[in-house]
Design a protein around this nucleic acid. Structure first.
Length: 268
DNA sequence: TATCTTGTTAATCG
DNA sequence: ACGATTAACAAGAT
């Protein structure tokens, strides 16, 4: 479940370690994750030199000498810098570089590997529709976004077209830190509560950003992120005591997904 | 075996 | 048009 902390770490690693590598050839083991035919994808990127990598929401965006390479790891996956001799068992796309290294990309379930021509990045719908990165929002922009919506808080935070990069893993702690219930109607939030939400987004994401993402995702060298289970406050801790008041943490249904809350600290 | 899970889009209904 | 809900899609763990 890569969200902002994991994606930011991957972008930084790719930016530092892949820049300057030239693609010798590509192997596509799962054509359905592409946005164009596999043959066209391979033709487009063969011979391309990788440049910088940035991210927008859950998308990794790499500039190459022959256009854009965009990756979305979906519900989780690995981007491993290996060689043909050390290929991981699970891979869906492989980029072989002229220096003998290879990039093996896997999604554990859904994911996307897209190509856009150099002058057509703005036509890539899935990234063009994204809102600002969660950590780039200031409290005034957040207030304006909230005023224009009438849904519930959790739905809003997960809507990538409003705020990009928050997923259903970090959101439990973000809402707990803000002392807000996931089902709160947006329109009922006070100015003070919006300020708490802003602080919750930062306080919930920053520790993991500082540690290269969560333990359940791997970096380019197969090492786990430094943000460990013990640092998660209430997410996935059903039945354990709330760290603030001791009330057992509850798992509740919020629409089609689940949320972990402290029913004492987070009142609707 | 049946159910659950991290993402995103599309279709539908009110 | 908007919000809510559901299904679908390429798996894997329990």
């Amino acid at each position: 479940m890569p969200e902002i902390p994991e994606i930011a770490a991957r972008a930084s690693e790719m930016n530092a370690e892949l820049r300057g590598k030239t693609i010798l050839n590509l192997e596509v083991l799962q054509p359905k994750c592409l946005n164009i035919a596999a043959g066209d994808f391979i033709t487009a990127l063969t011979g391309a030199e990788l440049k910088g990598t940035t991210y927008h929401g859950k998308w990794l965006i790499t500039e190459t000498s022959q256009g854009w390479f965009l990756l979305n790891l979906g519900m989780g996956g690995e981007i491993l810098l290996v060689t043909r001799q050390t290929l991981p068992e699970k891979r869906r796309i492989i980029l072989d570089f002229t220096d003998g290294s290879s990039l093996a990309i896997n999604f554990w379930w859904f994911g996307y590997a897209h190509y856009m021509a150099a002058d057509r990045l703005s036509e890539h719908k899935m990234t063009a529709q994204l809102g600002p990165n969660a950590m780039d929002l200031d409290v005034d922009k957040l207030r304006i976004l909230i005023k224009s919506q009438r849904t519930r808080l959790k739905t809003f935070l997960l809507d990538q077209s409003k705020i990009a990069g928050i997923g259903n893993a970090y959101i439990h702690d973000i809402l707990f830190l803000a002392r807000l219930h996931p089902l709160r109607p947006l329109a009922s939030l006070s100015e003070e509560e919006i300020a708490h939400l802003y602080q919750g987004i930062h306080a919930g994401l920053q520790p993991s950003i500082d540690k290269g993402g969560a333990f359940y995702e791997l970096n380019l060298h197969g090492q786990k992120g430094g943000f460990v289970l013990e640092e998660i406050l209430i997410g996935y801790k059903e039945g354990q005591p709330c760290p603030v008041c001791g009330t057992p943490i509850q798992k509740i249904k919020t629409g089609s997904n689940s949320s972990f809350i402290c029913a004492t600290c987070q009142v609707i």
